[in-house]
Design a protein around this nucleic acid. Structure first.
Lengths: 122, 122
DNA sequence: AATGTAGGTTACCTTGGGAAACCATCTAGT
DNA sequence: ACTAGATGGTTTCCCAAGGTAACCTACATT
């Protein structure tokens, strides 16, 4: 049942959107697309909690977006790298990052305007 | 403090990503970019719950992505339309929708592969 | 009077994220 | 020998966000 229709609630395409339309997923994929990174480097770069970072990386690996490599150094080194599929997605997500950085001013202005109007009503 | 650096945890750009990297936001903006829609039409098209739909639409309005118009018909008609800012964002998100629909097969295949490997280990 | 429709709000419960502690393994320092 | 420190997690607990279902207002039909 691979209907390919995002707007059918029973379509598996929705599952894909559920996964990739997530702030941590976006941030990790954009980071990994710049080069492989280790667990603690990802943690420091994003500020994500250890638990959720581990969960999110597991999902990225399961979905075929990232690969996990363990090097028996001491202490152990675990490196996460992006896959071709993940790189393809990251390119799409990069547009989202650029949009955020470019339009944040407009969004904050809209919020101030909305909140001011709200105060009048109250 | 509009630093414009997505990877700084204290940067307001993160707030923007938090809002737009959300599955309901993506779906609603893509829908609204095709034309204005009423509350219940959005509800039927997405399957989102009434409570969360109302919340998400309020946020979209506050962030300047959508506008709300009330028509005093009976019963009352409330129409949501996309704004220029929202349309700009929706164009970026449309890429995400297309990606989901085009690569769902690869993702499902990766999941099957991962799960099969997992079964062996167990 | 009862029912239906549109657009919500409210109460309640369950799920998921965040903070902090713990753990295994090895090395370096004293 | 003992302690501290780094890495990559897992576990525990708590709180906020999401889902379900019931209710509400206003009017119109039957």
């Amino acid at each position: 049942m691979e209907c390919g229709d995002l707007f059918n609630p029973d379509c598996p395409t929705r599952l894909v959107l559920d996964r990739i339309a997530d702030k941590w997923t976006v941030m990790l994929l954009v980071l990994l697309s710049q080069g492989p990174m280790r667990f603690s480097a990802l943690r420091r770069a994003t500020g994500i909690s250890q638990k959720v970072l581990a969960q999110t990386l597991k999902r990225l690996e399961r979905d075929g977006f990232a690969s996990r490599a363990v090097f028996p150094t001491v202490p152990v080194t675990v490196e996460y790298a992006i896959t071709p599929l993940g790189a393809d997605l990251a390119q799409t997500l990069e547009g989202l990052r650029l949009w955020s950085e470019r339009h944040i001013g407009a969004v904050l202005a809209a919020q101030r305007h909305y909140d001011a109007r709200d105060d009048q009503a109250a």
